[in-house]
Amino acid sequence: MRHLTVFDLDGTLVDTPRAIVETFTAAFGALGIAPPDASAIRATIGLPLGQAFGALLGLPADDELVASGVRRYQIHFKEIILPRAPELMFPGVTEGLDELRGLGITLAVATSKVHASADALLRSAGLRDLFALVVGADQVAHPKPHPESGRLILRTLGVPAESAVMVGDTVHDLHMARAAGMRSIAVTYGVHGPRELAEARPTWIADTFDDVVGLLRAAPKGLAG
């Protein structure tokens, strides 16, 4: 039976949260608006950009100021985050993904980034060719935590939900996995802390990417159980 692991991107494969805060801050500065506190920005990581800017500005996601913020963010993303992608990967990611592929596990990404930005980040980090599919927030009507992203990946790759595991650092990832019928691994080194992650009831919890690989190495034997 074919097995699938779906990864979140920011805070799971690539240590981008600090750079994301810098990018939001630069975008607010370009708009002539005082940026929110870093903690407020971090709290929006894992949401699509429009929702994040809307929450930070207290405006609807379709407001023109929100749209301007998103455009500014995307400009600064190319300047601030992309050049640093190779050095932002969490320890063990490249080796771990190679090992999982060697075990015959199909790999995919479900992210709240738009597809073009996710693809560019993965390519800059040297990871894109490891993934059979990358699904961004602009490719579904309802991004995470809605299960649509996960269901799209399962359907496209022809893998049943019981043979798939979602790996992510936020409760949005875990809620998506549960709603899509997938098992999940919560990683504690990203945006949300262990207590918050545990409340979302992941199947497993991992403190390092090596721990993720260890769990997935053993998981296929019991995925259908």
Rank of each mutant, 00 (worst) to 15 (best):
L122M: 09
V134W: 04
L122S: 05
L122C: 06
D169M: 10
S163T: 10
L127C: 04
L154H: 13
K144T: 11
P143A: 11
V140M: 02
H172D: 13
R128K: 12
V134K: 02
L130M: 14
H172Q: 09
E148M: 11
S149L: 10
Q139M: 09
G158S: 13
A118Q: 03
R123H: 15
S163Y: 12
F131W: 03
L127N: 02
E162G: 08
G136W: 01
S117Y: 04
V165Y: 13
A120N: 07
P143G: 05
T170R: 00
D119W: 07
F131G: 00
V167N: 09
E162D: 07
V171N: 06
P160S: 07
G136T: 06
G150I: 02
H142K: 14
H146G: 02
T170E: 01
D119P: 07
D169Q: 15
S149Y: 02
A141C: 13
G136A: 06
L122A: 06
P145H: 01
D119F: 08
G168M: 08
H172E: 14
V159N: 01
L157W: 05
F131R: 00
G158P: 11
G168I: 11
A137L: 03
I153V: 13
R128T: 07
V171K: 12
L122Q: 11
F131M: 02
S117M: 08
L127A: 03
R151W: 05
D119E: 08
A132T: 06
E148T: 07
D169N: 06
G158Q: 12
S149Q: 14
P143Q: 06
R151I: 08
H142T: 11
P145K: 00
H142V: 10
I153R: 01
P143E: 05
L121I: 11
S149K: 03
F131Q: 00
T156S: 14
P160G: 10
V135D: 00
M166A: 11
L157K: 02
A141P: 04
D173E: 15
G158C: 06
